[in-house]
């Protein structure tokens, strides 16, 4: 519990999240239909940030389940800590009662969301990493809003139905039964107008020349084909940060085609070289 509060405290930024009205509508519809909302989109379009923003604006605690590739569903629900129990039974110097298995059950993230005192926002991040079975099983649990703890033969039922946000990076579709139970939205990459707003939110005092040129250049760079990982919002923000931190840098340099710190934008060496070549060529002509 304390951990969640910390997470909430750390995040200072629903003020930093620019919400698309269309997306807001979809969030509201999913909430009232009590269905999980599945978000897809390129990396860097703010899928994860949305959950933070929702949690903040609804004043609900946020619980994040980061899905890993080899994750079993049960890890998200609860964990039976056999090792501690074995230890306690040998040395017996804890306050736990070794004969009570319940003392050794720890709730996973989904379990925490179900047993929380108040309604929570449950973010299931990057679900595409896990295999299909995990996804389908999890949706069953979320559909029924309950699961069994086999070891103590107890059913955990959700006290409050959490607001569930699921994100996926994969362009591959998830399984049909899974999709059938969620609402779906695809967050497109922000257009320059939207990007301007986003930058404004992150850098309230930014020089307008710098912003214009940086955003223009950014979209030009994104147009370069053959780049495997295109720079996203996160890269742009870091890039602007780098540019404004450099005392020698003048926004006009960008117009001339001098692009410092390309490495902030392109993170694969092949991409970096390719982009640098392209930039050089452009400069010459």
């Amino acid at each position: 519990m304390t951990k969640q509060l910390q997470e909430k405290d750390q995040f200072s930024g629903a003020k930093r999240y620019v919400l698309d009205p269309e997306l807001a509508k979809i969030v509201n519809i999913s909430r009232s239909l009590e269905m999980p909302l599945l978000l897809k989109g390129e990396p860097g379009t703010g899928k994860t940030m949305l959950a933070y923003a929702i949690a903040e604006s609804l004043h609900m605690p946020l619980i994040v389940l980061n899905v890993k590739s080899n994750m079993k569903l049960i890890e998200g629900l609860y964990q039976y800590d056999t090792l501690t129990r074995l230890n306690d039974s040998r040395f017996g110097d804890s306050t736990r009662d070794v004969s009570r298995i319940e003392d050794y059950i720890k709730m996973g993230k989904i379990g925490q969301a179900f047993t929380a005192e108040e309604r929570t926002v449950l973010l299931i991040d990057e679900i595409d990493k896990a295999d299909t079975d995990f996804q389908d099983d999890m949706l069953d649990v979320l559909d029924q809003m309950e699961f069994d703890i086999i070891e103590i033969d107890k059913t955990i039922r959700a006290r409050h139905r959490p607001v569930i946000i699921i994100t996926s990076n994969a362009k591959k579709d998830l399984s049909d039964p899974f999709l059938g139970r969620c609402n779906f939205h695809h967050i497109a990459f922000p257009d320059p107008k939207m990007m301007r707003k986003i930058i404004q939110v992150h850098f309230p005092e930014i020089d307008s020349d710098l912003m214009d040129h940086a955003i223009n250049t950014f979209y030009q760079l994104r147009e370069i084909d053959m780049v495997e990982k295109k720079p996203a919002t996160r890269e742009l923000i870091n890039w602007i940060r780098a540019l404004s931190a450099d005392p020698d840098f003048k926004p006009k340099q960008l117009v001339k085609g001098e692009l410092p710190y390309l490495g902030v934008l392109f993170k694969k060496s092949q991409d970096y070289q390719y982009a640098a070549n392209q930039v050089q060529r452009k400069k010459r002509f």
């Binding site: 979809i26 519809i29 579709d173 999709l179 609402n183 779906f184």
Partner: peptide, 24 residues
């Protein structure tokens, strides 16, 4: 969603029907 009164304009309907019906 319609019965819940969530949808009251065509643009609402567009957004809602897309989110609910189309999954990719």
């Amino acid at each position: 969603a319609l019965a819940n009164g969530l949808i009251s304009s065509l643009s609402d309907f567009y957004t809602a029907s897309r989110a609910i019906l189309v999954k990719s």
